[in-house]
Simulated assay, not measured.
Amino acid sequence: MEKEDLRVKKTKRSIEESFMTLFYHYNFEQITVKGITEEAEIGRKTFYLHYLDKYDLVDSIVKKAFTELEVICERKKGLGH
């Protein structure tokens, strides 16, 4: 498995955190790519290098959360809980 560049990881984390910050304050429909990029202090081109649109971003966030939950569940199985 190829390691992701540290700059890419930081950029994606910033985009995801910016989306979540906006999501706590606004409805999903009100959130725009422009708003996300302003919150993350990145250019729109940078956003589109990593995601197709805000729906793709949300899909990525949800997949990551489910993967983390799966890991937690597997660890608990191993501990006999």
Rank of each mutant, 00 (worst) to 15 (best):
T67Y: 01
K12L: 14
K77C: 13
R75Y: 01
H25T: 07
D56N: 02
K63C: 13
R44V: 15
N27I: 14
K9E: 03
L52S: 10
K54D: 11
E74R: 01
M1R: 15
K3P: 09
E41W: 08
F28C: 15
Y26R: 11
Y51T: 11
I31A: 15
I72F: 05
F19I: 01
S60I: 04
H25G: 07
E29H: 08
A40N: 08
H81A: 02
R13Y: 03
L52F: 09
T37N: 11
Y48G: 04
Y24I: 09
L57R: 07
A40M: 04
Y24N: 12
K9N: 01
E68F: 06
E17L: 09
V33K: 13
I15L: 10
D5A: 06
F28Y: 15
F19W: 01
S14C: 00
Y55S: 14
E41L: 14
Y26F: 13
S18C: 03
I61E: 04
S14Q: 00
T67C: 00
T11K: 02
T32G: 05
I36V: 02
F66N: 12
L6E: 08
L52Q: 11
V8Q: 09
L69S: 07
H50C: 06
R13N: 05
E70M: 00
A40I: 05
V71P: 06
V8G: 08
I31N: 13
F47G: 11
Y26Q: 10
E68Q: 08
V8D: 11
I42R: 10
T21A: 07
F23A: 15
K9Y: 02
M1W: 13
Y48D: 05
H25C: 05
K77W: 09
K77Q: 10
L6R: 07
F28E: 14
T32Q: 07
G80K: 00
E38M: 11
I36M: 01
T46I: 12
K63L: 13
V62P: 01
Y48S: 04
T32C: 07
L22M: 02
K45H: 11
Y24M: 11
T67F: 01
D5F: 04
Y24S: 13
I72H: 04
F66M: 13
V33I: 15
R44Y: 09
E68D: 12
